[in-house]
Design a protein around this nucleic acid. Structure first.
Lengths: 146, 146
DNA sequence: ATTTTCACTTGCAATTTGAAAGCGCCCAAT
DNA sequence: ATTGGGCGCTTTCAAATTGCAAGTGAAAAT
Protein backbone atom coordinates (compact mmCIF):
# COMPACT_ATOMS: atom_id res chain seq x y z
CA UNK A 1 0.00 0.00 0.00
CA UNK A 2 1.45 3.29 -1.07
CA UNK A 3 1.33 6.38 1.05
CA UNK A 4 -0.97 8.13 -1.37
CA UNK A 5 -3.48 5.30 -1.09
CA UNK A 6 -3.97 6.08 2.55
CA UNK A 7 -4.71 9.71 1.93
CA UNK A 8 -8.41 9.52 1.35
CA UNK A 9 -8.78 13.10 2.54
CA UNK A 10 -11.13 14.84 0.27
CA UNK A 11 -12.84 18.16 0.16
CA UNK A 12 -10.37 20.59 1.68
CA UNK A 13 -8.29 22.31 -1.01
CA UNK A 14 -5.23 22.56 1.19
CA UNK A 15 -5.34 18.88 1.99
CA UNK A 16 -5.71 18.14 -1.67
CA UNK A 17 -2.67 20.22 -2.53
CA UNK A 18 -0.73 18.62 0.33
CA UNK A 19 -1.65 15.19 -0.97
CA UNK A 20 -0.36 15.93 -4.45
CA UNK A 21 2.80 17.92 -3.78
CA UNK A 22 3.09 18.39 -0.03
CA UNK A 23 6.34 16.52 -0.04
CA UNK A 24 9.93 17.67 -0.35
CA UNK A 25 10.71 15.63 -3.44
CA UNK A 26 7.52 16.37 -5.35
CA UNK A 27 8.23 20.01 -4.70
CA UNK A 28 11.69 19.70 -6.15
CA UNK A 29 10.57 17.67 -9.15
CA UNK A 30 7.86 20.14 -10.01
CA UNK A 31 10.37 22.94 -9.71
CA UNK A 32 12.70 21.14 -12.09
CA UNK A 33 9.91 20.63 -14.58
CA UNK A 34 8.12 23.96 -14.30
CA UNK A 35 11.06 26.28 -13.75
CA UNK A 36 14.24 24.55 -14.83
CA UNK A 37 13.13 22.95 -18.07
CA UNK A 38 14.05 19.42 -17.02
CA UNK A 39 12.18 16.58 -18.66
CA UNK A 40 14.35 13.47 -18.67
CA UNK A 41 14.60 10.92 -15.88
CA UNK A 42 18.36 11.31 -16.02
CA UNK A 43 18.09 15.04 -15.50
CA UNK A 44 16.00 14.58 -12.38
CA UNK A 45 18.36 11.95 -11.05
CA UNK A 46 21.26 14.35 -11.53
CA UNK A 47 19.60 17.13 -9.53
CA UNK A 48 21.75 18.99 -7.07
CA UNK A 49 19.68 17.66 -4.19
CA UNK A 50 20.68 14.07 -4.90
CA UNK A 51 17.40 12.21 -4.91
CA UNK A 52 17.88 8.46 -4.78
CA UNK A 53 16.51 6.54 -7.67
CA UNK A 54 13.97 4.52 -5.73
CA UNK A 55 12.38 7.69 -4.39
CA UNK A 56 12.60 9.34 -7.78
CA UNK A 57 10.80 6.47 -9.48
CA UNK A 58 8.16 6.47 -6.76
CA UNK A 59 7.50 10.19 -6.99
CA UNK A 60 7.41 10.21 -10.76
CA UNK A 61 4.80 7.49 -10.80
CA UNK A 62 2.84 9.20 -8.06
CA UNK A 63 2.82 12.44 -9.99
CA UNK A 64 1.85 10.53 -13.09
CA UNK A 65 -0.98 8.91 -11.16
CA UNK A 66 -2.12 12.31 -9.98
CA UNK A 67 -2.27 13.49 -13.56
CA UNK A 68 0.59 15.94 -13.13
CA UNK A 69 2.98 14.28 -15.55
CA UNK A 70 2.81 12.05 -18.58
CA UNK A 71 5.53 9.53 -19.29
CA UNK A 72 7.04 9.13 -22.74
CA UNK A 73 9.71 6.95 -24.26
CA UNK A 74 12.08 9.01 -26.36
CA UNK A 75 11.46 7.86 -29.93
CA UNK A 76 14.97 8.83 -30.99
CA UNK A 77 16.61 6.79 -28.28
CA UNK A 78 14.18 4.33 -26.86
CA UNK A 79 16.20 3.63 -23.76
CA UNK A 80 15.52 7.16 -22.54
CA UNK A 81 12.35 8.43 -20.95
CA UNK A 82 10.98 11.88 -20.48
CA UNK A 83 8.07 13.34 -18.58
CA UNK A 84 5.88 16.23 -19.67
CA UNK A 85 3.87 18.44 -17.33
CA UNK A 86 0.11 18.29 -17.80
CA UNK A 87 -2.13 21.31 -17.85
CA UNK A 88 -2.83 20.56 -14.20
CA UNK A 89 0.85 20.80 -13.31
CA UNK A 90 1.31 23.94 -15.36
CA UNK A 91 -1.62 25.50 -13.54
CA UNK A 92 0.49 25.36 -10.40
CA UNK A 93 2.84 27.99 -11.76
CA UNK A 94 1.10 30.96 -10.12
CA UNK A 95 1.15 29.32 -6.69
CA UNK A 96 4.72 28.18 -7.20
CA UNK A 97 5.90 31.62 -8.20
CA UNK A 98 4.04 33.01 -5.19
CA UNK A 99 6.06 30.70 -2.98
CA UNK A 100 9.25 31.83 -4.65
CA UNK A 101 8.40 35.44 -3.94
CA UNK A 102 7.81 34.49 -0.34
CA UNK A 103 11.16 32.70 -0.11
CA UNK A 104 13.07 35.57 -1.62
CA UNK A 105 11.57 37.83 0.98
CA UNK A 106 12.25 35.65 4.01
CA UNK A 107 15.23 33.49 3.19
CA UNK A 108 18.24 35.61 3.88
CA UNK A 109 20.34 33.20 1.84
CA UNK A 110 18.12 33.22 -1.19
CA UNK A 111 19.83 32.89 -4.51
CA UNK A 112 16.93 34.41 -6.42
CA UNK A 113 17.54 37.96 -7.55
CA UNK A 114 15.37 40.65 -5.99
CA UNK A 115 14.36 41.64 -9.48
CA UNK A 116 12.35 38.44 -9.78
CA UNK A 117 10.11 39.22 -6.82
CA UNK A 118 9.79 42.81 -7.93
CA UNK A 119 8.75 41.82 -11.43
CA UNK A 120 6.26 39.29 -10.15
CA UNK A 121 4.70 41.74 -7.75
CA UNK A 122 4.41 44.44 -10.35
CA UNK A 123 2.92 42.23 -13.03
CA UNK A 124 2.23 38.68 -11.91
CA UNK A 125 0.49 37.76 -15.12
CA UNK A 126 3.46 38.77 -17.24
CA UNK A 127 5.82 36.72 -15.06
CA UNK A 128 3.55 33.69 -15.28
CA UNK A 129 3.25 34.07 -19.03
CA UNK A 130 7.00 34.19 -19.35
CA UNK A 131 7.40 30.86 -17.57
CA UNK A 132 4.51 29.37 -19.54
CA UNK A 133 6.29 30.31 -22.75
CA UNK A 134 9.48 28.69 -21.45
CA UNK A 135 7.60 25.48 -20.77
CA UNK A 136 6.15 25.52 -24.26
CA UNK A 137 9.57 26.10 -25.72
CA UNK A 138 11.10 23.15 -23.87
CA UNK A 139 8.16 20.91 -24.69
CA UNK A 140 8.21 21.85 -28.35
CA UNK A 141 11.05 19.53 -29.22
CA UNK A 142 9.47 16.60 -27.41
CA UNK A 143 5.74 16.55 -27.69
CA UNK A 144 5.50 14.92 -31.11
CA UNK A 145 6.64 11.77 -29.39
CA UNK A 146 4.76 8.78 -28.05
CA UNK B 1 19.12 15.22 15.12
CA UNK B 2 15.94 16.63 13.73
CA UNK B 3 14.97 16.38 10.10
CA UNK B 4 15.24 20.13 9.64
CA UNK B 5 18.83 20.06 10.88
CA UNK B 6 19.85 17.99 7.92
CA UNK B 7 18.32 20.29 5.38
CA UNK B 8 21.22 22.63 4.83
CA UNK B 9 19.91 23.40 1.38
CA UNK B 10 20.20 27.05 0.79
CA UNK B 11 19.77 29.36 -2.09
CA UNK B 12 16.93 27.93 -4.11
CA UNK B 13 13.60 29.50 -3.17
CA UNK B 14 11.64 26.35 -3.84
CA UNK B 15 13.93 24.29 -1.62
CA UNK B 16 13.57 26.90 1.06
CA UNK B 17 9.80 26.75 0.90
CA UNK B 18 9.91 22.95 0.87
CA UNK B 19 12.10 22.99 3.95
CA UNK B 20 9.71 25.17 5.90
CA UNK B 21 6.32 23.78 4.91
CA UNK B 22 6.87 21.05 2.35
CA UNK B 23 5.31 18.56 4.67
CA UNK B 24 1.75 17.35 5.02
CA UNK B 25 1.37 18.38 8.64
CA UNK B 26 2.99 21.78 8.36
CA UNK B 27 0.66 22.44 5.46
CA UNK B 28 -2.35 21.52 7.54
CA UNK B 29 -1.21 23.51 10.57
CA UNK B 30 -0.60 26.61 8.50
CA UNK B 31 -4.01 26.19 6.94
CA UNK B 32 -5.58 25.96 10.39
CA UNK B 33 -3.80 29.10 11.49
CA UNK B 34 -4.06 31.19 8.36
CA UNK B 35 -7.50 30.18 7.13
CA UNK B 36 -9.39 28.56 9.97
CA UNK B 37 -8.58 30.90 12.83
CA UNK B 38 -7.12 28.19 15.05
CA UNK B 39 -4.59 29.26 17.64
CA UNK B 40 -4.65 26.83 20.56
CA UNK B 41 -2.71 23.59 20.82
CA UNK B 42 -5.95 21.85 21.67
CA UNK B 43 -7.57 23.13 18.51
CA UNK B 44 -4.78 21.75 16.35
CA UNK B 45 -4.88 18.43 18.15
CA UNK B 46 -8.62 18.21 17.48
CA UNK B 47 -8.23 18.74 13.73
CA UNK B 48 -10.23 16.53 11.45
CA UNK B 49 -7.04 14.96 10.09
CA UNK B 50 -6.14 13.46 13.45
CA UNK B 51 -2.53 14.49 13.93
CA UNK B 52 -0.86 12.60 16.74
CA UNK B 53 0.45 14.68 19.58
CA UNK B 54 4.12 13.82 19.19
CA UNK B 55 4.04 14.96 15.58
CA UNK B 56 2.01 18.00 16.49
CA UNK B 57 4.52 19.06 19.13
CA UNK B 58 7.38 18.46 16.73
CA UNK B 59 5.84 20.50 13.92
CA UNK B 60 4.84 23.35 16.19
CA UNK B 61 8.36 23.67 17.49
CA UNK B 62 9.78 23.39 14.00
CA UNK B 63 7.51 26.16 12.77
CA UNK B 64 8.45 28.19 15.80
CA UNK B 65 12.12 27.61 15.03
CA UNK B 66 11.52 28.72 11.46
CA UNK B 67 10.01 31.95 12.74
CA UNK B 68 6.55 31.09 11.47
CA UNK B 69 4.84 30.93 14.85
CA UNK B 70 5.33 32.35 18.31
CA UNK B 71 4.29 30.37 21.37
CA UNK B 72 2.34 31.97 24.20
CA UNK B 73 0.97 30.79 27.52
CA UNK B 74 -2.60 31.93 27.93
CA UNK B 75 -2.48 34.45 30.77
CA UNK B 76 -6.11 33.78 31.69
CA UNK B 77 -5.57 30.07 31.98
CA UNK B 78 -1.93 29.27 32.32
CA UNK B 79 -2.30 25.60 31.48
CA UNK B 80 -3.30 26.50 27.94
CA UNK B 81 -0.99 27.54 25.14
CA UNK B 82 -1.61 29.32 21.90
CA UNK B 83 0.45 30.06 18.81
CA UNK B 84 0.34 33.23 16.75
CA UNK B 85 1.41 33.47 13.12
CA UNK B 86 4.35 35.76 12.44
CA UNK B 87 4.51 38.24 9.62
CA UNK B 88 6.49 35.62 7.73
CA UNK B 89 3.68 33.08 8.07
CA UNK B 90 1.07 35.62 7.11
CA UNK B 91 3.05 36.49 4.02
CA UNK B 92 2.33 32.97 2.79
CA UNK B 93 -1.34 33.80 2.36
CA UNK B 94 -1.08 34.72 -1.34
CA UNK B 95 0.72 31.49 -2.20
CA UNK B 96 -1.68 29.50 -0.05
CA UNK B 97 -4.72 31.02 -1.64
CA UNK B 98 -3.15 30.37 -5.02
CA UNK B 99 -2.91 26.70 -4.11
CA UNK B 100 -6.52 26.69 -3.04
CA UNK B 101 -7.57 28.11 -6.38
CA UNK B 102 -5.58 25.37 -8.06
CA UNK B 103 -7.23 22.67 -5.93
CA UNK B 104 -10.71 23.95 -6.59
CA UNK B 105 -10.00 23.73 -10.27
CA UNK B 106 -8.50 20.24 -10.32
CA UNK B 107 -9.96 18.36 -7.37
CA UNK B 108 -13.30 17.11 -8.52
CA UNK B 109 -14.28 16.49 -4.92
CA UNK B 110 -13.36 19.94 -3.69
CA UNK B 111 -15.48 21.35 -0.93
CA UNK B 112 -14.52 24.93 -1.71
CA UNK B 113 -17.22 26.90 -3.50
CA UNK B 114 -16.48 28.00 -7.04
CA UNK B 115 -17.21 31.54 -5.89
CA UNK B 116 -13.97 31.53 -3.92
CA UNK B 117 -11.77 30.86 -6.93
CA UNK B 118 -13.75 33.32 -8.99
CA UNK B 119 -13.39 36.06 -6.40
CA UNK B 120 -9.68 35.40 -6.03
CA UNK B 121 -9.07 35.47 -9.74
CA UNK B 122 -11.02 38.65 -10.23
CA UNK B 123 -9.40 40.53 -7.38
CA UNK B 124 -6.62 38.61 -5.63
CA UNK B 125 -5.64 41.54 -3.48
CA UNK B 126 -9.15 41.93 -2.10
CA UNK B 127 -9.32 38.22 -1.25
CA UNK B 128 -5.95 38.36 0.48
CA UNK B 129 -6.96 41.43 2.42
CA UNK B 130 -10.11 39.71 3.59
CA UNK B 131 -8.13 36.82 5.06
CA UNK B 132 -5.59 39.22 6.56
CA UNK B 133 -8.41 41.01 8.33
CA UNK B 134 -9.72 37.71 9.64
CA UNK B 135 -6.31 36.89 11.06
CA UNK B 136 -6.15 40.27 12.76
CA UNK B 137 -9.59 39.74 14.19
CA UNK B 138 -8.71 36.36 15.66
CA UNK B 139 -5.40 37.61 16.99
CA UNK B 140 -6.96 40.70 18.54
CA UNK B 141 -8.22 38.89 21.61
CA UNK B 142 -4.87 37.19 22.20
CA UNK B 143 -1.96 39.38 21.36
CA UNK B 144 -1.86 41.37 24.58
CA UNK B 145 -0.58 38.21 26.18
CA UNK B 146 2.93 37.01 27.01
C1' DA C 1 -6.87 17.40 49.19
C1' DT C 2 -8.18 15.25 45.12
C1' DT C 3 -9.39 14.97 40.60
C1' DT C 4 -9.35 16.83 35.99
C1' DT C 5 -7.51 19.45 32.21
C1' DC C 6 -3.93 20.34 29.31
C1' DA C 7 0.46 20.40 26.78
C1' DC C 8 3.51 17.84 25.83
C1' DT C 9 6.96 13.31 26.20
C1' DT C 10 8.10 8.54 25.95
C1' DG C 11 8.05 3.78 24.30
C1' DC C 12 7.65 0.95 20.69
C1' DA C 13 5.93 -1.24 16.42
C1' DA C 14 5.22 -0.19 11.71
C1' DT C 15 6.07 2.54 7.76
C1' DT C 16 9.10 5.24 4.90
C1' DT C 17 13.51 6.69 3.43
C1' DG C 18 18.01 6.41 1.32
C1' DA C 19 22.46 4.46 -0.26
C1' DA C 20 24.03 0.87 -2.98
C1' DA C 21 23.74 -2.90 -5.83
C1' DG C 22 21.23 -5.42 -9.29
C1' DC C 23 18.37 -6.14 -13.50
C1' DG C 24 16.68 -5.95 -18.07
C1' DC C 25 16.28 -3.36 -22.16
C1' DC C 26 18.18 -0.69 -25.88
C1' DC C 27 21.77 0.83 -28.79
C1' DA C 28 26.60 1.32 -30.64
C1' DA C 29 30.86 -0.59 -31.65
C1' DT C 30 33.41 -4.53 -33.04
C1' DA D 1 26.43 -11.82 -33.98
C1' DT D 2 28.38 -10.45 -29.79
C1' DT D 3 29.80 -7.56 -26.36
C1' DG D 4 29.84 -3.46 -23.63
C1' DG D 5 27.77 0.59 -22.05
C1' DG D 6 24.11 3.68 -20.98
C1' DC D 7 19.71 4.04 -18.99
C1' DG D 8 15.42 3.51 -16.27
C1' DC D 9 13.99 1.54 -12.93
C1' DT D 10 13.70 -2.38 -8.82
C1' DT D 11 15.49 -4.63 -4.89
C1' DT D 12 17.76 -4.95 -0.48
C1' DC D 13 18.38 -3.66 4.02
C1' DA D 14 19.74 -0.52 7.67
C1' DA D 15 18.49 3.82 9.57
C1' DA D 16 15.22 7.48 10.23
C1' DT D 17 10.49 8.91 10.78
C1' DT D 18 5.78 8.17 11.91
C1' DG D 19 1.87 7.17 14.68
C1' DC D 20 -0.66 5.05 18.28
C1' DA D 21 -1.03 4.61 23.13
C1' DA D 22 0.33 5.44 27.55
C1' DG D 23 2.67 8.41 30.76
C1' DT D 24 4.14 12.88 33.08
C1' DG D 25 3.98 17.11 35.41
C1' DA D 26 2.10 21.60 36.04
C1' DA D 27 -2.10 24.22 36.70
C1' DA D 28 -7.36 24.46 37.57
C1' DA D 29 -11.38 23.05 39.07
C1' DT D 30 -13.99 20.57 42.73
Amino acid sequence: MKKSDKITWSGCPVRYAAGVFGDKWCFVLLRDILLHGKRYYGEFAASEEGISTNILADRLSRLEGDDMLTRHVDPNKRSKVFYLPTRKARALLPAFLGMMVWSTEFDEKTAAPASFAKAFREDPKAAIDWYEAEIDRVNAGLEHSS
